[in-house]
Amino acid sequence: MSRKVLITGGTGLIGTRLAEMLIDAGYEVALLSRQPGTSRYRGFRWDPQAGSIDEAAVTYADYIINLAGSSVSDGKWTNERKRDILSSRLAGTELIARELAKGNHHVRAFISASAIGIYGDQDDKVVNEQSPPAANDFLADVCQKWEAAAQSVAQNDIRTAIFRIGIVLSPDGGALVPLARVVKMMAGAPLGTGRQYMSWIHLDDLCRLLIQALEEPKWEGTYNAVSPNPVTNKDFTETLAGVLHRPLVLPKVPEFGLKLMMGEMSEIVLASQRVSAEKVLKQGFEFEYPTLKVALESFYGEEV
C-alpha cells in the first residue's frame, strides 16, 4: 500500500524531525515549499500568498500534514508581522483545501496544526478541547481562523485531525533554546509572576502523535498536543536549572520589563495555559516523555 506523505512547513522545527521519523517508519516524504530542491526530500513548489501550487503535489499524496505558518516568536508583533502570522497559516491551509475539493486525488487523511493559543490566558483553570476560544486575543483569533480553514477539508469526506500544539521542547529551536541559554549563563529567573502555566510537549512525542493520527482512522476532530503534566513557569525554570546544574540567582523577571522588551509578544510567556492531555490519552497515545524532568534530561542529561 502506498505511503506517501506531503508536508507543508516541512523545513521548520517540527517538520524537519517529523520527516526523519516518517522515513524511519517506512514512509515516502515530499515537501511543499516556495523553493523546492533546497532539501533532501522531493519538493513541490507552492506560493500560498499568490494562491499557486504544483498540480502534482496533492495527487502525489496519501496523507497531508499541514504545519506551515511563520513563527510567532520571531520579532515584535508589529501590524505587518501580525498580518504575516495570520496569512501564512490561512493562505496555505485554504489553498490545500481548495485543491482537495477538486477531487482526483487519493488523500486518506489531512492532519493540521493549530496551537493552544486558542485558549488565551486562563490563569490556573484546566482547559480541554471543549473550552471556548478566548475573546479579544490575537493568537486565539489566528487559531480559530486556521482551524476553520482546516475543518473545511473534512467537508470533502477526508478524515481531518487538528492538533492544538503546546510549547514544543527541542534543543534545536523554539522556546527552550533562549531559556536554556539564559540558565546556562546563570541568569535564569521565572518570568512575570512565575505562576503562569506552561503546557509543553517533547518534539519527538509530538511527531509520534502526528504519525499515530495519520495511521489510525479513529483520530478525527480536534486534540490538544501537550504532555499530561503542565508546569508553572517557576517550576519550569527550576527544573531546567536543576537538569543543567545551574543555580537560579536572579529574582523574577518583572512583567513590565518583558512587555517593554517584547511588546504584545510577551503574551506567549506571560499567558497561563493549563491544557488537558486527557483526550489523546483516551485515544491510546502513550507519551515517551510525560514529565518535564524526563523531557529535559533527554536533551541535556549528558551535559553534566
Rank of each mutant, 00 (worst) to 15 (best):
residue 253 V to K: 11
residue 120 G to M: 12
residue 15 G to M: 07
residue 166 G to H: 04
residue 16 T to N: 13
residue 192 G to N: 10
residue 258 L to V: 12
residue 148 A to F: 00
residue 99 E to F: 01
residue 5 V to E: 06
residue 91 A to Y: 15
residue 160 T to Y: 11
residue 36 P to K: 09
residue 121 D to K: 14
residue 290 P to Y: 03
residue 287 F to T: 06
residue 19 A to M: 03
residue 104 N to C: 06
residue 171 P to W: 04
residue 226 V to Y: 03
residue 34 R to A: 01
residue 113 A to L: 03
residue 174 G to Y: 04
residue 75 G to M: 14
residue 12 G to F: 08
residue 97 A to R: 11
residue 208 R to L: 12
residue 230 P to R: 00
residue 219 W to E: 10
residue 126 V to W: 12
residue 48 P to M: 01
residue 115 A to P: 06
residue 115 A to C: 09
residue 301 G to A: 05
residue 187 A to G: 15
residue 65 I to Y: 09
residue 278 E to Y: 04
residue 184 K to C: 05
residue 185 M to D: 09
residue 90 L to H: 07
residue 30 A to T: 12
residue 11 T to P: 12
residue 45 R to P: 03
residue 190 P to L: 06
residue 134 A to P: 08
residue 12 G to A: 05
residue 220 E to L: 01
residue 150 A to W: 06
residue 7 I to K: 00
residue 4 K to D: 08
residue 76 K to Y: 02
residue 99 E to Y: 11
residue 229 N to G: 00
residue 48 P to H: 04
residue 233 N to M: 08
residue 153 V to P: 13
residue 162 I to A: 12
residue 170 S to M: 10
residue 204 D to N: 14
residue 92 G to N: 11
residue 50 A to Q: 15
residue 210 L to D: 08
residue 235 D to R: 10
residue 124 D to L: 02
residue 126 V to N: 00
residue 219 W to H: 08
residue 128 N to M: 04
residue 254 P to E: 13
residue 170 S to R: 04
residue 230 P to A: 08
residue 135 A to V: 14
residue 33 S to K: 10
residue 20 E to Y: 01
residue 290 P to Q: 11
residue 55 E to T: 10
residue 158 I to K: 14
residue 291 T to K: 09
residue 203 L to S: 04
residue 50 A to H: 08
residue 193 T to W: 12
residue 115 A to F: 05
residue 139 L to N: 02
residue 177 V to K: 15
residue 29 V to W: 05
residue 44 F to G: 03
residue 201 I to H: 02
residue 13 L to P: 05
residue 7 I to H: 03
residue 222 T to R: 12
residue 198 M to S: 08
residue 39 S to R: 10
residue 42 R to K: 15
residue 286 E to H: 10
residue 27 Y to S: 05
residue 186 M to H: 13
residue 272 S to Y: 05
residue 60 Y to C: 10
residue 281 L to N: 06
residue 204 D to T: 13
residue 106 H to S: 15
residue 295 A to F: 05
residue 82 K to L: 08
residue 104 N to P: 15
residue 279 K to C: 04
residue 251 P to N: 07
residue 205 D to K: 01
